[in-house]
Computed example of a mutant assay.
Amino acid sequence: MTHLLILGAGFSGKAIGQAFTAAGFSVSGTTRSAEKAEGLRALGIAPILYEGGPVPEALVADMARATHVVQSIAPGKDGDPLFRAGMPPISALMPNLAWAGYLSTVGVYGDHKGDWVDEETMLNPVSARSIERVEAENHWLGFGKTASLSVAVLRLAGIYGPGRNALRNMAEGTARRLVKKDQVFNRIRVEDIGRAALFLAQKSLGGVWNITDDEPGPPQDVVAEAARLMGLPVPPDVPFETAELSPMARSFYGENKRVSNAKLRAAGFEFGFPDYRQSLAELHTSGLWRG
């Protein structure tokens, strides 16, 4: 039986697990807490407690039967957990592996002053976390080449979906229209991440793939659309220059680019939520915005 192991079954990992489960895979996923383990079990994802470091016996056994793996654990300063010193080779841990997916970020492209980028664009990571992602990407792609295995790097745009979206921010009074001249971001509905991972796995596609919807745009426009759908006043503009932001939040605005999904579309993938307006409307109508 085809079996997917998700290393780091968080917001994106759970959506991936649901997509694979619906396609007939057995699915397991790691989590750091017993509380979250119950949530995974409710979705049909067998939970495995793993906090990093030495691999526990339960995870060793699950790795041995995995035919597919998705790595979603952030690398951190010590690098990707599966490539750290003392870790057995992936080919030894997962001898039945037929496909692997690594969840990265469009942040690896860095700043392109609003220009379009695609999978062939030279990388220019700015933040430490994006530099770490590039290193991890290279490890996974190198493993794929050495093992003659299809390894897909999924570069994800800004993730949102049920329970994590501008509609909920509006309802909770936390939405802000932060405005920086000419700034745009890409975004992706979490269910489309799940569907894209399944698409790549079922076609045994490797290499680098941008996972983003069709329409990069100003973040304040998303907030305005959410306010319209909720029938609430549009929050006032907050100039970026004077806004109170965490260093991480401010760093996101230091990168400005439009990320193309043309490669994924050319391969035959169809988005369930190709732009934020359709997606927010569906979240609002269905009530899924609450989570």
Rank of each mutant, 00 (worst) to 15 (best):
A34R: 15
A42D: 05
K77A: 10
E135W: 13
R129I: 01
A224K: 05
G24H: 04
D182W: 06
V190W: 03
F143N: 08
P219R: 06
L5F: 04
G144R: 00
A19Y: 06
A224N: 05
P219Y: 09
G110T: 02
R41H: 12
T67Y: 00
G287Q: 02
A74E: 09
P47D: 12
G53H: 10
L245Q: 06
A42P: 00
A92V: 15
P125F: 09
K113F: 11
E35V: 15
Y102M: 01
T67V: 00
V134W: 03
E215P: 03
S91E: 11
E120N: 12
G24Y: 11
D111A: 07
G107I: 01
Q220Y: 12
M94L: 01
L288I: 00
P219H: 01
E38L: 15
V134K: 03
K36C: 05
N96W: 10
R41N: 12
K77F: 13
S104L: 12
V190L: 14
I6Y: 02
I6S: 08
G53V: 15
T30A: 04
K77S: 15
P162N: 07
D80Y: 10
T242K: 00
L4W: 07
K113I: 00
G10C: 08
N124W: 05
G44C: 14
V69D: 00
S26P: 09
D182S: 12
A281G: 14
P218M: 11
L167D: 01
I45L: 04
V27M: 06
L82A: 11
V259H: 04
V208C: 10
L280T: 06
A61N: 10
H112K: 11
S279A: 15
L43G: 07
A64H: 09
N186I: 03
H284W: 11
Y50M: 01
I16Q: 04
S148C: 08
T174C: 06
Q183Y: 14
D221P: 00
R32T: 15
A226L: 13
L4Y: 03
W140Q: 00
N186D: 13
A74F: 08
P239D: 15
H139T: 14
A15R: 04
P239N: 07
M230R: 05
A98K: 13
E215A: 07
L40M: 10
S246M: 09
P89H: 13
R32V: 03
N186L: 04
L280K: 06
D221G: 00
L149Q: 02
L154A: 02
S150Y: 11
S130F: 08
A227P: 02
D62Y: 03
F83K: 12
A224F: 04
A281N: 13
H68T: 02
T31R: 01
T121Q: 01
N256R: 08
L232E: 09
Q278N: 13
G231L: 06
A147Y: 01
P89T: 05
G52T: 14
I73R: 09
R277P: 13
V60T: 13
V69H: 02
L82M: 15
A61I: 13
P218Q: 06
G8Q: 08
A64G: 07
A201E: 06
W99R: 06
L178E: 10
R290G: 11
L283W: 04
E51P: 06
L232D: 01
G107T: 02
P218I: 09
R228I: 12
Q18M: 11
